[in-house]
């Protein structure tokens, strides 16, 4: 396969991003800076706009207003080479149950234009501890096994920006632990990791920074107390629809408002 042109970036900047679905506003003037080597938690109740934010970051959904920059590039200018630097794992695992674990990985390795797809798949299966089940159909896998496989599929092409939508849903403690370890490895490797989740207990020790989305509006969580306390305080502080919109970027890098 011919190698794809690589578009690298160390920062993603959302400026005044809004997203409407008809008359419903899913995101409202969101400003956010994501930097390499940090894990950002996007917290918020159901319907707050978390999945929409991830959709916009993944380049699959276009903002109605504002823009998203990956380094210097916008999503439309970046095109396919930019998509090669983004990985997205949603709570639906984006796997084909009628294919084996190996076939799933090889298919996506081919789509991403990776060289030695069979070898890459083999390595990914080993990382997911699924080498012995490599040739079994995914439909026979448990939720935890599917999740591990989907995680490796997401990371197969070593993306710069990795987006997770509720990745801990339905996982047992051991699988959660494995996922947490993998997320920490991604941070160490200098990836930008965005995590939309409800599982505050699991991610409380993991996040470098947390933001709250409510009614499509984004605000930083404070820095005093546990994550759960800060989350509750922020929810109480932000009455529905009356929370003022942050005027500038809601954070500008790791450590600015550490979790």
């Amino acid at each position: 396969m011919p190698p794809l042109q690589i578009t690298d970036f160390t920062q993603v900047t959302l400026s005044g991003v809004s997203r409407h679905y008809g008359r419903r506003r899913a995101l409202s003037r969101v400003n956010l800076v994501l930097s390499a080597g940090e894990i950002i938690g996007v917290l918020g109740p159901n319907g707050a706009g978390k999945s929409t934010l991830l959709g916009v970051l993944s380049t699959l959904a276009e903002p109605s207003n504002g823009d998203v920059r990956y380094g210097d590039l916008t999503a439309s200018a970046g095109g396919a080479p930019l998509r090669a630097q983004v990985g997205f794992l949603s709570h639906e695992l984006q796997l084909y149950p009628e294919l084996t674990a190996r076939e799933n990985l090889e298919f996506f390795a081919g789509l991403y234009g990776l060289d030695r797809p069979a070898e890459r798949a083999h390595e990914a299966l080993a990382r997911a501890s699924l080498s012995e089940r490599a040739d079994d159909l995914v439909e026979g896998f448990s939720r935890g096994m599917r999740q591990r496989l989907a995680l490796e599929r997401t990371l197969l092409h070593a993306p710069r920006l990795v987006l997770f939508d509720e990745p801990f849903t339905g996982l047992d403690e051991a699988s959660c632990g494995t996922l947490v370890t993998r997320l920490q490895q991604l941070r160490t490797a200098g990836r930008i990791v965005v995590l939309a989740t409800h599982d505050l207990d699991v991610v409380s020790q993991l996040l470098d920074r947390a933001v709250l989305l409510r009614m499509g509006r984004l605000s930083e969580l404070g820095s005093k107390g546990s994550l759960r306390e800060r989350y509750r305080a922020a929810l109480a502080e932000a009455p529905r629809g009356r929370r003022p919109v942050p005027s500038g970027p809601s954070g500008s890098g790791p450590g600015e408002s550490p979790a």
Binding site: A80, P81, R83, V86, F88, Y96, F108, L111, R153
Partner: peptide, 18 residues
């Protein structure tokens, strides 16, 4: 339909392909 199940379509569309 099989792309809709398990959101596989998103995986396809995310790929850096034409």
């Amino acid at each position: 339909e099989r792309e809709r199940h398990h959101d596989a379509l998103r995986g396809l569309l995310m790929a850096p392909v034409d």
